[in-house]
């Protein structure tokens, strides 16, 4: 058995699982609305709208909770990027995932108390948490209160543009979810990372 490091305090774990469940529910209700079809009623449209709104509002609250955790604890340090050489570190990590992992090589950026994320994780988490999420919240809240949206943007409906941006970002977040869940199986065992996010101890 390898060395155990306590990486995930309770607040982070609660936020993480709440975030994960809400994202999955938002993807399901979002797809149900976007591809609504009277012949294949996966979910009642009005129910999907109501649930999507409730989950979206809850996710915003959860995001505020995440930001507060980051400000009040030292969790924020894991998201800080040393720009110098970051590109090379990304390439090194990518090479490991695409080639080295099959040759039994050791991970180039092993997890420690100082380094919770490898460069690829750091890049994708920053993109999702600090770019995609704020954008999806702004567009989502605007769609809950559509009267706040500019009616006409150079001849195109403002609601249309807002929804388009919301759906495109939603799509990328769902792609991230799939990849994230798969990469969580890469650990000392298939379930070790899932277990770590339950008890806080990384193996």
């Amino acid at each position: 058995m390898g060395v155990k490091i306590f990486l995930y305090p309770l607040s982070i774990r609660i936020w993480h699982w709440l975030n994960a469940v809400l994202c999955l529910l938002l993807i399901i209700t979002g797809i149900s609305m976007q591809y609504s079809n009277p012949e294949y009623p996966f979910m009642r449209f009005d129910l999907a709208v109501t649930l999507h709104n409730i989950f979206g509002i809850t996710l915003t609250v959860s995001y505020v909770f995440f930001i507060i955790i980051n400000i009040t604890t030292n969790n924020i340090k894991f998201y800080k990027v040393q720009l110098k050489g970051f590109k090379n570190r990304l390439i090194t990590q990518s090479k490991y995932y695409s080639v080295g992992i099959f040759k039994g090589q050791k991970t180039p950026f092993p997890i420690s108390e100082k380094r919770k994320f490898n460069p690829l994780q750091k890049f994708s988490y920053i993109l999702v948490m600090y770019v995609f999420f704020p954008l999806i919240f702004i567009t989502g809240w605007a769609l809950i209160f559509p009267e706040t949206i500019i009616h006409d943007v150079f001849g195109i409906s403002g609601i249309h543009l807002t929804d388009l941006l919301h759906v495109i970002i939603g799509f990328f977040v769902s792609v991230f979810m799939f990849v994230h869940i798969y990469f969580c199986t890469i650990g000392t065992s298939i379930g070790s990372n899932f277990k770590a996010m339950l008890n806080g101890w990384h193996e």
Binding site: M33, Q34, Y35, S36, F45, G155, I156, S157, I159, H160, D163, L164
Partner: peptide
């Protein structure tokens, strides 16, 4: 529809 409105589910691309 898109000229003046946007109907989720009806205006897919």
């Amino acid at each position: 529809i898109l000229k003046e409105a946007y109907v989720i589910g009806a205006n897919r691309n």
